[in-house]
Design a binder for these strands. Sequence first.
DNA 1: CAATGCATGTAAGGGGTTACATGATTCT
DNA 2: AGAATCATGTAACCCCTTACATGCATTG
Lengths: 198, 198
Amino acid sequence: MSLRHALLGVLTARPMNGYSLARFFAGSQNWVWSAPQSQIYGALKTMETSGLIDASREEGQNGLETKVYSLTDEGVAELTRWVSTSHAPAPTRDAFALQALYFDSIPAADARAVLEGYIRSQAQQLEEWERHRDALANLDTPLLQERLKSRPKGEHRRISRLKAHVFEGQILQAKARIDWAERALVLVGDAEGEDDEG
Amino acid sequence: MSLRHALLGVLTARPMNGYSLARFFAGSQNWVWSAPQSQIYGALKTMETSGLIDASREEGQNGLETKVYSLTDEGVAELTRWVSTSHAPAPTRDAFALQALYFDSIPAADARAVLEGYIRSQAQQLEEWERHRDALANLDTPLLQERLKSRPKGEHRRISRLKAHVFEGQILQAKARIDWAERALVLVGDAEGEDDEG
DNA sequence: CAATGCATGTAAGGGGTTACATGATTCT
DNA sequence: AGAATCATGTAACCCCTTACATGCATTG
């Protein structure tokens, strides 16, 4: 559902081809939406068919012919409409919380190892988000710079602050998860020597 | 992927039929995994085929014949294995953060309305999770009581604390989201009168 | 007798993942 | 010559959503 809006959002910064969009979304360790390459091309095709974006054949970086997509008026309107609308939250589906619900039924050492791995991956993600937040706050990302070219200078500070704040939100959540996991380590460790089936 | 493990986890408390499981997972406003009824029956069938659970025909609440599923040894082993293993975090896909990234391009009043709706829904979810956490801490949920029957009394307190802590984690995250959204309200409101395209 | 609850399923369609396939250009 | 990068796609499979379909039993 939202991949389309993510693509529309990126394309408001500047027109891009499928390959660049795919790189942006692939893995995407530091953004709020990710998608594999194979999904991008299909989505772009259906979005073109439904009139949200336009393709123009242009020369790529190496003289290769590429399809460069840009927003149509309809695409801009759809993004604006979507951003302005309240959407019901997606149903909860938290695999790690599910896993943690059954830590009481495995050896404490195993639960500790899983929690530590979780903390490591959250800490890494946290770092990446902090970097991205700082880059946005300093107007130091390529896409933001492109985007600001079509906005009056007086708005630049407000825009960069708003975008940085979105990643501040991700940061706060990652920190909450890390704090939680550290307290879980204590809870699990409490019963050292506890084993499997009781 | 994890619906199977969620089902295995619930079935460790007691054998259940598809209908009860469907009610448990449907909407599931206060648990960590949700799934619609239509998904449950299919998942149960494939899990039975792959030997994770066993079905036995028994009498339901009203003399109706129902299929009651219980874990096989293989099912227990699979759940234990899954819970004991570190899993890579799912790629980020945060629709609300995506939406918030473009609040700078809509009227501030619209952004405020969306944020307020978000805060309301998060606050509601928060309340439900707090109720559930408290119920677990007080050994006051039907499923936990069933589950504890097969565990030594000495472990009851530890188990209920661990489970309650999982929901404490959800609570902390919901609070972080609400705090974030409230600061976002200030940031957005800063530029009162700012409009659409600049 | 109608509505609600118990109980089990199917079907169609969309979204996401993994892997495969192809071809040109640039770098080493 | 071989590897990496640019560039665009396809195919199979699984998960999830929405909706439909059926039938028995209880309650008002």
